[in-house]
Amino acid sequence: MSRNRTVITPQGNSVSKALRELFQNPDLLWTFTYRDIRVRYAQTYLGLAWSLIQPLFGLAAVFVLFFKIAGVQTGEIPYLSFALSGLIFWNYFSYVVTQSSASLVNVQTMIKKIYFPRLALPIGKSFVGLIDFGVALLLLFIVNLVLGQPLAGLLFFPLILLLTALTAVGIGMIISSVSLRYRDLQQIIPFALQLLFFITPVAYPQALLSSVIPDEWSWLVYFNPITGFLELFRGLLYGGEISPLVWISVVSAVIIFVAGVLFFIRTDKKMADHI
């Protein structure tokens, strides 16, 4: 009879062991995701409709602010198609960062009482966000259909979504474990995301951002991965130039994710003591 042996030492879990445990029981990820989705819509009248209302309001807000008031120009692409193609990823990013950052603090009692692969908590949030993303993607499909904009490029969404998820979960993993000790971080997230929203070309074209930065420094904007991903997606969807510097964004995303996983596992063994 083969038995799994667990050895507990002061060093805690190794990275390989932590990852193996997570994948040995993929049902845990699924269960957490299911729980969050169920809880989110429990006792709401509108239920799933909220997933539609949120991007609609967001779209209306940027339409008034950026298009009507600020007079942002998006060339041949109708503003609604342009903004929505950015918002669907931004909303997903913002949701996953917020949720995964709070994923440990919100279940402190559980962390103090039971062992389970804790990586499942922040990672699970990236699946929860998929429902909202799916609804928003459908909205973009409808808007583009109505406005006669290209649809084929929408099929590239899994690539951009994956890259966005890696970035968001990577950030979430770091913030969630640090904020067990320093709760202040939880207060900073909304501001930080708001600030990031304004310096990311979600509701305005990237040319506008580049125009305020000296040419020789323009590559810096790609260190914000979302900037690169949106350029990539819009390029694939609506045509137009995709800078080779987008690679910087892809590499940043991977680095953020790997750093997040390593950091999370390193701090994992002290989590219960810090609560």
Partner: peptide
């Protein structure tokens, strides 16, 4: 420590088989 919620400062535990805790 046995249920791996927290880790020891020193020493070692070896557990043969799957462990679950009802804490």
């Amino acid at each position: 420590i046995l249920s791996r919620i927290t880790y020891p400062t020193s020493g070692r535990v070896s557990i043969e088989g799957r462990l679950a805790s009802l804490l």
